[in-house]
Design a protein around this nucleic acid. Structure first.
Length: 360
DNA sequence: GTATGCTTTCGGC
DNA sequence: TTACGGCCGAAAGCATAC
């Protein structure tokens, strides 16, 4: 079973402010550069009717909604996290195995408690929907299928507030007419290939030879797509124990390549990443800087640290060094936004782990 | 040749 | 007509180890 909370941030805002009910609601990330500079994080379904989508500039969303009484609200991420945590705990309690894949999505393995009976799985889904509405005033879209792939595609089939059940014997019939890009992992690049191959539906995709898959999509994606187009997937639902990375990114006051204008922000971002590592009890081994230039192109540079750390100073030093190197190697680059990322995380248990043993 | 690790890019929301 | 965020995980591409 796949559960997807409908335009989650927008629902959180509607619940926090009843004035928003019934209006188009646009949740915005303001960059602070000018009055309306920034992007749309998400929009409720009323706003989507006017063409407002995640990722578009706020100013464009305002134009699209200028004839209606719409609400533009700043994103409040800590609030969404808190609400999400309660919801995820509830969903986990309704499952045999649980896997949260984002702040608003999760897979629930309900095979045991339903004995693989899809009518019984429907009851679980209905109970989840009722409980979510009662306890958190939130709607969701649920997909039920014989595996994660089909559950995920099914949850996307009917939104918002949908429930789509695909029994094993109906899987091929369900998938066949769908556009091939509904398969997770088929993005822009794979889609271009599909056009070349004259493939638009999953059924057409499944008609390609195994060689055609590997030749066009590579061994990894190719064999995944071969199976996916047949509705096959054997991934298990499993808890994600540890995050893989923490990052902070922000927009500069003005476009620049001067160290005195970028370093203070880099320091702030590095400190924030370090604080989060410490707060959550992690150390990192690699540090990455993200550079977004005036043409909005995205670049990154990373390095592996000499030793694991969560301290502010080594992360800050690495970020400054990587930025300097990037600017030296790219004399025409002008920075618009910069970010700092810590990855290769390890949870520090306080117990003697192998690396401590070896250094001792 | 395969496994593993590191760096960079892609894509979803 | 343009406009433009802040996260995350996964994939791709390459190098190195065995």
């Amino acid at each position: 079973m796949h559960v997807d909370l409908d335009s989650f941030y927008a629902q959180c805002e509607e619940n926090a402010n009843p004035n928003l009910k019934g209006k188009p609601v646009v949740v915005c990330v303001y960059s602070g550069r000018t009055e309306d500079s920034g992007a749309v994080s998400t929009a409720n379904y009323q706003a989507r009717k006017y063409g407002v989508r995640a990722g578009i500039p706020i100013i464009r969303a305002k134009k699209l909604l200028e004839t209606v009484d719409a609400a533009f609200v700043p994103m409040n991420h800590p609030r969404y996290e808190e609400i999400s945590e309660r919801i995820m705990d509830m969903l986990r309690s309704q499952s045999d195995a649980f896997e949260q894949t984002s702040i608003d999505e999760a897979f629930l393995d309900v095979s045991k408690r339903t004995g693989m009976n899809f009518e019984s799985a429907r009851d679980v889904a209905v109970e989840i929907k009722e409980q979510l509405l009662r306890q958190e005033h939130v709607t969701c879209s649920i997909g039920i299928g014989p595996n994660k792939l089909i559950a995920k595609i099914a949850s996307d089939q009917s939104k918002p507030n949908g429930l789509t059940i695909v029994k094993p014997e109906d899987a091929i019939t369900f998938l066949s007419p769908l556009p091939a890009n509904r398969i997770p992992g088929v993005g822009k690049k794979a889609e271009e290939k599909l056009i070349q191959l004259n493939v638009s539906t999953v059924a057409e995709l499944s008609g390609l030879s195994p060689n055609t898959f590997v030749e066009n999509f590579g061994k990894s994606l190719g064999s995944y797509l071969y199976r996916a187009s047949r509705g096959e997937d054997d991934e298990h639902v499993k808890e994600r124990e540890q995050p893989a990375q923490f990052s902070r990114i922000a927009t500069l006051k003005q476009n620049t390549r001067l160290p005195e204008e970028t370093f203070p922000l880099l320091t702030e971002l590095a400190y924030s990443v370090s604080d989060k590592l410490k707060e959550q009890g992690f150390t990192c081994k690699s540090v990455t800087i993200i550079a977004i230039l005036t043409d909005l192109s995205i670049h990154s540079r990373s390095k592996t640290l000499e030793s694991r750390t969560s301290e502010r100073e080594p992360i800050e030093a690495a970020a400054k060094q990587l930025t300097q190197q990037f600017l030296r190697a790219n004399p025409d680059a002008i920075l618009r936004r910069v970010g700092v990322k810590a990855s290769t995380l390890t949870k520090e248990t306080g117990q003697t782990d192998i690396s401590k043993f070896l250094t001792a």
